[in-house]
Computed example of a mutant assay.
Amino acid sequence: MVTLFLTNVLLGLSIALPVGTVTIEMTKQGLKNGFLHGWVVGLGGMTVDLLLIVLLYSGLASFLSAPFIQLMMWLIGALFLLYIGYDSIRHADHDITSPGEHVKKSFASSYMNGIFVAISPSNLIFWLSVFGTVLTNSLQSSHSFHFLLIAAGILTGILIHDLGLMTIVSGTRKVLNQLYIKWVSIAAGCVLIGFSCYFLYRFIGNLRIYF
């Protein structure tokens, strides 16, 4: 059991290492508002992961893998990322706090940003593929605990990554001036808009099968 858990902690770490939308938003918020705000973005992303795990465990894998559901997720993800990317560029020089200053941005706002950037079919497809073999046996009580153990291991790995990333970002923040942080925010917004365009491209491509 311990080996299974630790193996999936490593899997969670490896999943979180590649730069994605959640990592970009975490880094931006961490630089602008400190460790806790960046970490709360990660918690928002993990909330989406946890929700998907619950839905899969509840037997909704076939529903979530339906082409129409994935089509809608491409569109919803594109719209959310477009909004967050635009907002990141528009307010690049706003809400930048120095270490020790009072942070005006609310944790709820950072948390919701984490949820929004995590909503994507790529995230859904990942969970479907990771738990594909586990789901076939999830109705058997002897395997239900294994399912939950794997999920807990992966989420723990993602959490360790998020804490490590925010520790590095918060340390870097102490030696950066506000102009540099502003341009990081602009760059992050451009990348998020790029992801949005890709999601929209996938939505349009998948939409063609209905016409």
Rank of each mutant, 00 (worst) to 15 (best):
Thr27Cys: 05
Val41His: 11
Ser58Gly: 15
Gln29Trp: 05
Ala61Lys: 14
Ile89Arg: 15
Tyr86Pro: 06
Leu52His: 03
Ser98Lys: 12
Leu79Val: 09
Thr27Trp: 01
Ile89Ser: 11
Ser98Pro: 01
Pro67His: 08
Ile84His: 05
Met72Ala: 14
Gly38Met: 03
Leu43His: 07
Trp39Phe: 12
Ala61Thr: 13
Asn33Arg: 13
Gln70Cys: 07
Leu51Gly: 03
Thr27Pro: 00
Gly34Ser: 03
Ser88Asp: 08
Thr47Leu: 13
His37Trp: 03
Val54Phe: 09
Ala78Val: 04
Phe63Ser: 02
Leu50Ser: 13
Phe80His: 05
Tyr57Gly: 12
Leu64Pro: 04
Val54Leu: 10
Thr27Met: 10
Thr27His: 01
Ala61Arg: 14
Gly45His: 10
Asn33Lys: 14
Ser58Phe: 12
Leu71Gly: 02
Ser58Pro: 02
Arg90Pro: 04
Leu60Ile: 03
Ser58Lys: 13
Val48Trp: 00
Asp95Met: 12
Thr47Tyr: 03
Gly59Asn: 07
Leu64Ile: 06
Leu50Asn: 10
Arg90Val: 10
Leu79Trp: 00
Met26Ile: 06
Val41Met: 04
Leu50Val: 10
Ile89Phe: 14
Gly44Ser: 07
Ile76Asp: 09
Leu82Ile: 06
Phe80Met: 05
Gln29Leu: 14
Ile96Asn: 07
Lys32Gly: 09
Ala92Leu: 01
His37Ile: 08
Asn33Gln: 13
Asp87Ser: 15
Leu56Ser: 11
Leu71Arg: 06
Asp87Tyr: 12
Met26Asn: 05
Gly44Thr: 00
Gly30His: 08
Gly59Leu: 00
Arg90Trp: 01
Ser88Arg: 04
Ala61Pro: 07
Lys28Val: 09
His91Arg: 11
Phe68Val: 13
Leu51Val: 08
Gln29Met: 11
Asp87Glu: 14
Leu36Asn: 06
Leu81Glu: 08
Gly85Asp: 04
Leu71His: 05
Ala92Glu: 04
Thr97Ile: 09
Gly59Asp: 02
Met46Asp: 01
Glu25Asn: 09
Pro99Ile: 05
Asp95Cys: 04
Val40Asn: 03
Thr27Asn: 02
Asn33Ile: 00
Met26Val: 01
His91Thr: 14
Leu56Pro: 06
Leu81Met: 15
Met26Ser: 11
Leu56Thr: 10
Tyr57Trp: 14
Tyr83Trp: 07
Val48Ser: 02
Gly100Ile: 12
Phe35Gly: 10
Leu55Ser: 11
His37Thr: 12
Glu25Arg: 13
Pro67Cys: 07
Ser88Glu: 04
Thr97Ala: 15
Leu60Ala: 03
Thr47Trp: 01
Phe68Pro: 02
Gly42Asp: 00
Ile76His: 00
Leu79Gly: 09
His91Val: 05
Trp74Val: 00
Gly34Val: 06
Phe35Val: 03
Phe63His: 08
Ser65Pro: 01
Gly100Cys: 11
Glu25Cys: 13
Met73Asp: 03
His37Asn: 07
Thr97Tyr: 10
Met26Ala: 06
Ile96Met: 01
Trp74Phe: 15
Pro67Ser: 11
Thr97Ser: 15
Trp39Pro: 01
Leu79Phe: 08
Asp93Phe: 09
Ala66Trp: 07
Met26Glu: 14
Val54Ile: 15
Pro67Asn: 09
Tyr57Lys: 12
